[in-house]
Design a protein around this nucleic acid. Sequence first.
DNA 1: TTGAAAGCGCTAACAT
DNA 2: ATGTTAGCGCTTTCAA
Lengths: 335, 335
Amino acid sequence: MADIARIAGVSRATVSRALNGSKLLSPETRERIVELARSMNYSINVAAQNLRLKQNRTIAVIVPFDPSTRQHLSDPFFLSLIGSIADALTARGLEMLLSRADVSELETATQCVDAGRASGIVLIGQWHLHDHLNELARRAVPFVVWGARMADQAYATVGGDNSRGGELATAHLLRSGAKRVVFLGDTGLPEIAERFEGYRRAHERAGIKPVARLRRDTPFVQASIIADVEDLVNSGARFDAIFAASDLMAMTAISTLRRLGRGVPDDILVVGYDDIPLASFFHPALSTVRQPIESAGEQLVESLLEQLAGNAPASRQLVTELIVRESSVVASRTA
Amino acid sequence: MADIARIAGVSRATVSRALNGSKLLSPETRERIVELARSMNYSINVAAQNLRLKQNRTIAVIVPFDPSTRQHLSDPFFLSLIGSIADALTARGLEMLLSRADVSELETATQCVDAGRASGIVLIGQWHLHDHLNELARRAVPFVVWGARMADQAYATVGGDNSRGGELATAHLLRSGAKRVVFLGDTGLPEIAERFEGYRRAHERAGIKPVARLRRDTPFVQASIIADVEDLVNSGARFDAIFAASDLMAMTAISTLRRLGRGVPDDILVVGYDDIPLASFFHPALSTVRQPIESAGEQLVESLLEQLAGNAPASRQLVTELIVRESSVVASRTA
DNA sequence: TTGAAAGCGCTAACAT
DNA sequence: ATGTTAGCGCTTTCAA
């Protein structure tokens, strides 16, 4: 900038004003300086500008990972969610700082904000962090989390109505004639726990007692899903349907069942969760509980911006609907 | 930091030294200051630090989008690639700035670097930008692109051997008895063009003349894929195999074929490209050309870091292998 | 071992 | 309409 000022024969202040479109300059000077800057391929140093302005147009998006599984970022739903947030942020001219963090050292995450790297945080998934998160909220760090709404939460969440989703899926299965529905998913996670609560409620309303051993606390790891389904089949457990906590789980389960000689939906009905883009192209087309991925990004960002504008953290719940396709329909259309 | 200095009864310089682990302090003073800083929940302001140090630990990852289709970030392969890059960056203690940019205004992308936001760029996909990219390279902006190696490129690319991949897939199809292989993919993109070149070469080597009208310049848009496959079937075009430029395309095609009464692999053989995680769980399990997604992120980052260290841009090619599963094998194991 | 002072690139009072 | 000056939060000579 100093260079530009020198070459243009003006002060740095004038250059700054020109570049920021101030009204206090003669249009021709401004024009001339802007032109010069462009020709020199100059752009304002954002770090310095932010330092001076104490502002910041970047949002940190943090994907926690469990140090024990240490699995890579791979679930298509979370990946799509990131894409959706990126779109929402880009649309608003905000930048996105993406990082992964060990859940056990969530404190590090906060640093983004404390260190002035970002002005707010979007946390993908609340995992087992509920208490930590409440504490974080007390420290007035602006953040939203994708997850389940909890009774005593001091922070904002955006997510579907998991308990309703679980109930819709299970009720549909029960209505289709299933009597023994497997639940696949780690109920240690709040979202999944709520889906299980829906599962339980659907049984209650249908007057059917759920079979305890058909509840599997399967983590989001391919190998575990396969192992659990194999165990279910090989142990001779009787079941006629599966409600899986994610589409990826459902697809893995279907594929495993098929390998073991069980057909879906002919022998076993299956419903997944999320409605990832591939769900409708799967065979059989996957019945699932839809989480509106595009609006998810929008809502997360909106909720965060509200907080940044000084409002109290407000949670948002997204519409949750059952999408019935082939995997849960008995007289399957496809041969 | 001034606060800490005051409370600790030392100068800001001392605090700075303590926090950076300088050897010039007595261990106990350092200890005391570090402790105090922690208790105050203080972290160094990175913007200021970077400004002063003229350094920068962040890398911009840019996903170009075509303003005409304006489609959201959704292809599982690209999404996984982003995940992979995020992992590689995190492992090296680097930060990732993710953004989308209109291909027509790639200049804006450069700003990340010019403005000191990031010290290098990873570009996901080279699209139609080859010439722009060469020019960019001449301006000595450190960047790598995920894509095809071109004859006259002045910049670094990381990618598979697309031409070999195309040949492997096509040769496999031809060897399996296919005579009329559809090519699905937009050859306007360098990567796809190379895959098509492999398709051509495989035919040549097999002494089979490819059927011109079976080449479809299908863009990466769900609706177009479906439309093209429908057209293929309805127009009465004869074909017995499809080589699709991505797994998503292949899956969409298979699903569409099935809807129209054509079975895969019984009536039509299909091979995809990428080997996304879901490919093996698809039904029929998808034969495909594997792009090693985990090492992709690693290599992109390594290549960029090399440039940042002052070396000339060097491209890297990843191993490309054919994975034969069920969708291209005639006597399918599954009923 | 510590402090004083200068300066990274920018903006905004304040002065002219 | 433009320039002068101070200062954002940090690091680092240089001096003590």
